[in-house]
Amino acid sequence: MGPVGQHMRGKAHRDLDSDPEVSKDNSITFTYETTEKGVRRVLQSARACLTTMGLDEDFCGTAEIVLAEALNNVAEHAYPGEAHGMARLRLRLTPDGCDFDLTDQGKPMPGLILPVGQLPPLAGPRPELPEGGFGWFLIRALSDRLTYTRKNGTNHVHLRLPFTHGG
């Protein structure tokens, strides 16, 4: 599997989230702005990248779902309200799956842990049905490795999607 996209050195003239950076270990790094539109653009770029790598639509769809939830969470919790910043998404293929590393310099996760992500109850009358709480459930349902670390002011979420997922 060769490098994907244009190989670029240095960051000085790189467009935000449009040109991914390919490293020597064949990982690809996207830098993006943590706005809703910035997240949407980087998701589309990352998916296009996975498709170019020859991964099937089912896997690419799963990856986009998981990344959407993780990146939106970064956007909402690390940079609440009107605040936003630059964050990074790094992806790397391994023989059994795809590793994703999300880093940002925003606020730490509350309690320095990731939410449990249980599916909210769907029973009960219509006015009580849940409109949220699905994000971490989806991430945990589709990934087989998920860690969070906070170090030197940086949030780092590592997650891995296996090639044989249960979705």
């Binding site: 769809g61 986009e64 779902i65 959407a68 939830e69 939106n72 849940p130 409109e131 949220g132 699905f134 994000g135 989806l138």
Partner: peptide
């Protein structure tokens, strides 16, 4: 494509 916000 839909995410959890869209689902909500």
């Amino acid at each position: 494509f839909i995410d959890s916000s869209g689902l909500g």
